[in-house]
Nucleic acid binder design. Sequence first.
DNA 1: TCCTCTAGCTTGGAC
DNA 2: GTCCAAGGTAGAGGA
Lengths: 259, 259
Amino acid sequence: MRLVIARCSVDYTGRLTAHLPLATRLLVHKGDGSLLVHSDGGSYKPLNWMSPPCTLTVETPDAEAAEEGVVELWRVTHAKSGDALLVRIHEVIHDTTHDLGVDPGLIKDGVEADLQRLLAEQVDVIGDGLALVRREFPTAIGPVDLMLRTVTAGVSVEIDVPPGVEADVHVSAAPAGPAPARHVAVEVKRRAGIDAVEQLTRYLELLNRDPHLAPVRGVLAAQSIAPQAKTLAGDRGIDTVVLDYDAMKGIQSGIPTLF
Amino acid sequence: MRLVIARCSVDYTGRLTAHLPLATRLLVHKGDGSLLVHSDGGSYKPLNWMSPPCTLTVETPDAEAAEEGVVELWRVTHAKSGDALLVRIHEVIHDTTHDLGVDPGLIKDGVEADLQRLLAEQVDVIGDGLALVRREFPTAIGPVDLMLRTVTAGVSVEIDVPPGVEADVHVSAAPAGPAPARHVAVEVKRRAGIDAVEQLTRYLELLNRDPHLAPVRGVLAAQSIAPQAKTLAGDRGIDTVVLDYDAMKGIQSGIPTLF
DNA sequence: TCCTCTAGCTTGGAC
DNA sequence: GTCCAAGGTAGAGGA
C-alpha cells in the first residue's frame, strides 16, 4: 500500500464525469491496483476512486502541463469498463509504501440474514398459531423471506400440545378433513421503507394466483418501519410487525430452537 | 489528517456488531474526528469506520490487554447514536500527520438531473407529437420527472409547422373543439430497476384519478433498463425508452433548445 | 456470466 | 428533525 499526500487535481470519466480542483489530498494506492482520493473530512467514501481490476501508470507531464506546475501524472484505467481517473500532481508532500499482507476479513452479526434466521426460529413473534413452511420460499420473481402457515385446527387441539411443529404435525394427520391451511408470506427487513411494501405486494400478487397457496396474507417484519411504509402496508392489507433484535437474540440463546 | 499503519484488531458495536482479527492495516484519522480502517485491497469502502460527529480517545491498555500485546487502545464514539469503534493496537509501524486544508469539493456531470434536463429539451426522444407540460410536475405523492402531452390535432396541421411548442400553441388556439390532450408521465432514471416501475405506477394511479389529466400514459426512460423492469413495465402498459446520454448531449450542444 | 437484493449503505433535499 | 430518493452506488449470492 502506497500512501501519498499531494497537491493535485483529479478528473474522472466513466459512467459520469467529475472534476476535483487543485487541493491537497491523500492518495491511497492499494496492492490490487485500486486508487482512493481522500480529503480531510467528509465521509468514509473517497472523493474519487478507481475500483479493481485497474492499473495505475505514472506519466511525465507534457510541456504544457509542466508549465502549469504538474510534476507527475497518474492515469488509472479500469480493465473492463474503460473508466479512467487522471490525477495531476503538482507537489508531493509525503510518499511511503507499506506491506500490509492479506487481511483476514470482517466478521459481522446483526445483518438481515441473522434477523431472518432468528425470526424463522421464533415465528410466534409474527402471530399465534403459525408454523414455518420454509425460509427463502421460492417464487418465479425471487424468494420470499419466510413462508408460514396457520395451524388453527380447532382450539381444543392446541391447548395440550406444544406450539409449532407438533401442533402442525397433528393437524396434518387429522383424519376429519382438515381446514385448509392459510399461508403467511413474511418480508424481513432491518429498516422497511415503501420499497419493502412494494416488494411484498409483488410476491403476494403472484402467490395468491397459486390455488395451492391462496389465500396468502402478507406480513412486513422489521426493526424499524417508516411511517409511510406502515400506511401503505395498511392500505394493502399487509400487517406490520416491529422486531426487537436483542430480545430475539436473548430468547434464541436461552431456549434451544425447535427446528 | 493522521495516517497510522498498525497491527491491530478492531471491534464495532452499533447498528450491528463486527470484528476484525489482528492484522496490519491503515488507520486514517480525519480532521473531523472520523476514523477509517483500510486493508490493502478490497473496496473503496473501509473495513470499519466511524462517521462524524465522533471523537477519538486514546487509552492506555489495562494489565490484561497489555499482556496480550496491546500497546494502545483507540476508542471512537459517535456523538449521537452511541455506536463505538474499539481499535486494539499491537504495533505502530507508521505514524504521520498532515494538514490538508479544506477541499473545494467535487463537480459532477451526467447524474439523473442532467439526464432529466436534456430529455426535457428533447421530448421527441420519447415519441412524436409530444410537448413538454413541465418538469417536476407536482402530485400529492411527489413530483413526476416530466409531464408531456400530445399535440395530435390532425395530421394536416402538423405538416407545415415546427414540432413542439409552435404546434402546441396552434392546437390550443384551434377554434373547432380541439381533441382532448392525452398526457404522458415520464420517469427518468440512469438505471431503471423494478422500483422505478413501481414508482411510476404509483404516480399513474394517482394521475389517472384526475379528470383534467386522464388518460395519462406512462413512459420509463433510462440509460439502462433491467430486464425484469422492462417485463413488469410491459405488464402494466408502461412504455420503456432507452436513452443515449452522449447522443442527447451532442444534440443539446449542437442545436439550441426551444425552451 | 447476468441479475437480483442488501447495505453499519451514505448523502442530499424537501417538508 | 424525519422521510424519501439517488448513487460512478458496491458487493454478495443465486440462477
